[in-house]
Amino acid sequence: MQHSKTQDTLVGFFVASGIAALFYMALQVSNLGSYTSDDSYTVYAHFQNSGGLKVKSPVNVAGVRIGRVSAIRLDRDSHESIVEMRIESQYNNLPSDSGVSIYTAGLLGEQYISLDPGSSDEFLKDKSTIDITSSAIVLEEMIGKFMLNKAEGK
């Protein structure tokens, strides 16, 4: 088999397109392109029940994503769930009396945190805690209550 210049070019093209496909998938398809860098600050919130919230769930204000949940753990003393959020530092003017609630996107969708800005002149800082929280609505609990009410009403 004769080894030619065209072959070299075609092999080069093949390898380049394969690597380009990998880069395409890394940046366009996966979450690598939308990773928040270290350019963010941490805020905590205590919830009675954080429901189906997961690490990496979005944190929204008025429907715009401003950060992600970075950790969820249980407070050993109060048995509440502590949700740690990383907020992008360009949004550093959130009032300190803002409230957070856990909502579900659609009926069966993913759960996310919605932050309702307050009116205070002070802003949330790194490692500050949000006091006004409302827990996740657990669908089974609601259905259970509804059924109980229905049964009692009879």
Binding site: A21, L22, M25
Partner: peptide, 15 residues
Amino acid sequence: LSMPLLAALFSAIGI
């Protein structure tokens, strides 16, 4: 060496 490149191409073009 070719297999991972081919698989990546397959996935990217499939998407």
